[in-house]
């Protein structure tokens, strides 16, 4: 049984996505949620480049991957600043303690 290189990359992408989704489900700390989102986006970036290469348009996949990296960095920056403000105002980073919604 031979393993194609693209399928080997796909296995890594699926593993990273699975770990990211699992972390997103079980994590309650705000900074750790930012961290888990970073893991998910790294998997998506590799998947975009892989898709570009598989479809014969590597330039398109790479340009979209670069855009995603920039957008993800801005999301991380703003989310971290918000987490810092939440910690200053509420004294905790635990989502269940911060949330005022009940039901």
């Amino acid at each position: 049984m031979t393993l194609d290189p693209l399928n080997a990359v796909l296995i890594g992408v699926i593993l990273l996505l699975a770990v990211g989704f699992y972390g997103l489900l079980i994590t309650r700390n705000l900074i750790k949620i930012v961290l888990v989102l970073q893991i998910l986006v790294k998997a998506v970036v590799i998947a975009l480049v892989l898709a570009g290469k598989a479809s014969g348009q590597p330039g398109l996949g790479q340009s979209i991957a670069a855009t995603v990296i920039v957008a993800d960095t801005i999301v991380a920056v703003v989310a971290l600043a918000l987490a810092v403000q939440v910690r200053i105002r509420f004294g905790t980073l635990d989502l269940s303690k911060i949330s005022s919604l009940r039901g």
């Binding site: 031979t2 194609d4 290189p5 080997a8 990359v9 296995i11 890594g12």
Partner: peptide, 10 residues
Amino acid sequence: ESVCYLLLGM
């Protein structure tokens, strides 16, 4: 190459 990709992914 496939083994390298697999190791990097894992």
